[in-house]
């Protein structure tokens, strides 16, 4: 199996890579920094915030593809009151979390780099169900990915036999999550990225994958009580950030 993954050097992406390499897959990683483990992996350095870097990717991938699985896992976060967030941060969040996966999907499709029968998986966030006060730009970008995946699902299956999915993980024990947790957070209740990676890889058909018990509980609460869920997120995160 040939796999392409963005953000595969760290966090959830690295956990996905670990599972896939154990299963014998050939993995190509797109990331800004090289992976710490698995030095033998094929690594394509790329700054996804730069459209020119992104546009150059398909040519570099031509020999490697077509891929049976593409995972758009690269993402960044920045927390704090929106009005105090530097404009450069807002631009960066938009470019990496929202524009890059959409542009890369277009490039891969145009160059026939996703194999028929393959999967295209976007990594969004459980904030899709709950909102995320204190990270409004992040929440917006992730919601865009959910709608984008939903929009692509039917035509991609009908025209290309490609399954499009989106996963909405909750907080995980990753360096990324620890950096953006409110001060004093113990990190308890965060899911292990390996469990989340396994849940995502196992779920081969579902349109929206809600991996892990914690994110399933958050998603259910958000679906049943959307206003209260956002209010709870505000109390737990935003009010501890300001």
């Amino acid at each position: 199996m040939r796999v392409l993954i963005t953000g595969g050097s760290d966090g959830l992406g690295a956990a996905v890579v670990r599972h896939l390499t154990q299963a014998g897959a050939q993995v190509w990683i797109i990331d800004k920094t090289a992976p710490q483990t698995h030095q033998s992996l094929r690594f394509l350095p790329c700054d996804l915030a730069q459209p020119d870097d992104l546009a150059g990717l398909p040519a570099r991938l031509q020999q490697a593809g077509p891929f049976d699985l593409v995972v758009m896992s690269a993402g960044i976060n920045a927390v704090g009151p929106f009005e105090a967030m530097p404009l450069a941060t807002i631009r960066n969040l938009h470019a990496i979390n929202c524009a890059a996966p959409i542009l890369l999907a277009q490039h891969l499709l145009a160059q026939d780099l996703i194999a028929a029968g393959g999967r295209l998986v976007f990594i969004a966030s459980v904030s899709h169900f709950t909102g995320y006060p204190g990270a409004s730009v992040y929440a917006g970008g992730k919601d865009a990915l959910v709608a984008f995946a939903r929009s692509l699902r039917r035509p991609f299956w009908a025209d290309h036999r490609i399954t499009v999915q989106v996963a909405t993980p909750g907080p995980m024990r990753t360096a990324h999550a620890a950096r953006h947790a409110p001060p004093g957070s113990t990190g308890r209740g965060r899911a292990c990225p390996d469990h989340i990676a396994r849940a995502i890889l196992r779920s081969k058909r579902r349109a929206v994958i809600v991996p892990g018990v914690a994110s399933q509980a958050m998603a259910l609460f958000g679906r049943l009580f959307p206003v209260q869920a956002t209010q709870a997120m505000r109390k737990m995160l935003y009010e501890r950030l300001v």
Binding site: P81, F82, A139, D143, T230, M233
Partner: peptide, 19 residues
């Protein structure tokens, strides 16, 4: 792409309203 952009706006608005 249009749907994604408008969903992004909806998600941004939801969290910003709370902030």
């Amino acid at each position: 792409v249009y749907a994604a952009s408008k969903a992004g706006l909806d998600g941004f608005g939801r969290s910003l309203r709370s902030e």
